[in-house]
């Protein structure tokens, strides 16, 4: 099947929802052209808004609209949607438990030529540690399209992390989405590779590499990073006895930390982590960045071999 850009999925969904439901709002902070949402403003001038370059205001205005009965989507590049507006999200949105969906686009190496200043590698850690906040990272357009109705129906704050122009092909139309579940993408018995976002594809490729080395890897996609499904994670590593986490984020505080927390509290096994190793972002094309930060399928495969070798004999 032909896959689409993530932003196209968001726009179609919002156009449909805003047509049907006059309680749904969208707020941009001067990035509606890059997100392709500018046309919504013509269709829904009272509810598709732009506050200008003021993300903190955007977050609190959204909370106010939500307090008056709206369901509000706000969007920006991931660093500005989260880091920049952290206290406003923690207090106006999360502490007040308002129904606001925060879309953070182009996280981590997806920022590419915008470089280090625009490269969110802390956003999951920050958002995950805020009470009342759900954290979701989309893998591809199919998953995002199936997730958005569930995320909208969920009464509460959600952080939605996704590549904006990214076109990924992991799932097909038969994919069954479960908001609070995980995605078992390949069964295996020697090691579990947990991937999120763009690293799901890399994890699947790593499993192919490992098969050539005689290692049978299980691959699980983690889309809902908080609340994380500890049960399914633990069940898998009880079987395989080792794990690798692969994420487009700092290995401190992100999906890998969430998975490791679930493992270490229930059935400690060797865990190796792939992602930004506490380094700042930098400018460059995706392939270069993937290699420079050690985030390729080959890096995951090497980490898996290490995890397997660390198993207790």
């Amino acid at each position: 099947m032909e896959h689409r850009e993530m932003r196209k999925v968001i726009n179609e969904f919002l156009f449909d929802q805003m047509s049907k439901n006059d309680r749904i709002f969208l707020i941009d902070a001067d990035l509606s052209i890059p997100h392709g949402t500018i046309d919504l403003r013509k269709a829904f001038p009272d509810r598709a808004l732009d506050v200008g370059i003021a993300e903190q205001n955007m977050a609190s205005v959204a909370a106010g609209i939500a307090a008056a009965g709206g369901t509000v989507f706000i969007e920006s590049f991931a660093p500005f949607a989260t880091r920049r507006a952290c206290d406003q999200i923690a207090i106006s949105i999360a502490h007040a438990n308002r129904n606001v969906k925060i879309i953070g686009s182009d996280p981590g190496i997806n920022a590419e030529l915008n470089g280090g200043t625009h490269m969110a590698i802390e956003d999951i850690g920050v958002m995950r540690s805020i009470p009342n906040m759900m954290v979701f990272e989309a893998v591809d357009d199919v998953q995002l399209a199936k997730a958005l109705p569930a995320l909208t129906a969920y009464q509460g704050a959600v952080y939605i992390r996704m590549g904006r122009k990214l076109v990924m092909d992991v799932f097909d139309e038969d994919y069954e989405f479960n908001l609070f579940g995980t995605d078992l993408l390949r069964e295996g018995s020697d090691v579990t590779l947990f991937g999120s976002g763009i690293m799901v594809k890399e994890s699947l490729e790593a499993a192919d590499i490992l098969a050539g080395e005689g290692i049978d890897a299980e691959v699980i996609g983690i889309h809902t990073i908080k609340p994380i499904n500890a049960e399914q994670i633990v069940a898998s590593v009880m079987k395989t006895g080792a794990a690798v986490t692969a994420e487009n984020h700092n290995i401190l505080g992100g999906m890998g930390s969430a998975v490791a927390e679930a493992i270490v509290q229930n059935c400690p096994v060797p865990v190796e982590m792939i992602g930004f190793k506490n380094r700042c972002g930098q400018v460059g094309p995706m392939d270069f960045l993937k290699e420079d930060y050690g985030m390729t399928a080959q890096d995951i495969a090497c980490a898996a071999m290490k995890a397997v070798s660390r198993k207790k004999k």
């Binding site: 509810r47 609209i65 406003q88």
Partner: peptide
């Protein structure tokens, strides 16, 4: 509205006023 982290309440009030118009 929840408020007290200074500066945020006015933005929330703006949101409420904008929702009222919508």
């Amino acid at each position: 509205m929840t408020a007290g982290a200074l500066g945020q309440g006015l933005s929330c009030a703006v949101g409420m006023a904008k929702a009222g118009k919508a």
